[in-house]
């Protein structure tokens, strides 16, 4: 079970200009849809973009507090 605000805050600590939306898909707080928009993704392939976000959520993912994470990363247009 994770706090959705904390997920957004953790990502912003790693990617300061990020605009983050976090949606709880299952109501149980462990199946999340996360969308992140940031200039930091510019020029990075999808793997590198997602790794940036995963880096911010390393503990939650390792402990499986987040069991399932659907992730979408884009640059602001």
């Amino acid at each position: 079970m994770v706090d959705l605000e904390e997920i957004g805050a953790a990502i912003k600590r790693q990617i300061p200009d990020a605009v983050v939306t976090v949606e709880d898909l299952s109501g149980g707080g462990d199946h999340l849809q996360v969308n992140v928009v940031s200039k930091a993704f510019g020029g990075l392939n999808l793997i590198r973009q997602h790794q940036l976000v995963y880096e911010a959520l390393k503990t939650e993912l390792a402990s499986e507090a987040i069991h399932a994470l659907a992730l979408n990363t884009t640059t602001p247009n």
């Binding site: 995963y54 993912l61 390792a62």
Partner: peptide
């Protein structure tokens, strides 16, 4: 890469 599944093509991780 902290999640499963992971797909490799000719030894290269693609996502």
């Amino acid at each position: 890469w902290p999640t499963i599944p992971q797909v490799y093509v000719k030894g290269e991780f693609i996502g």
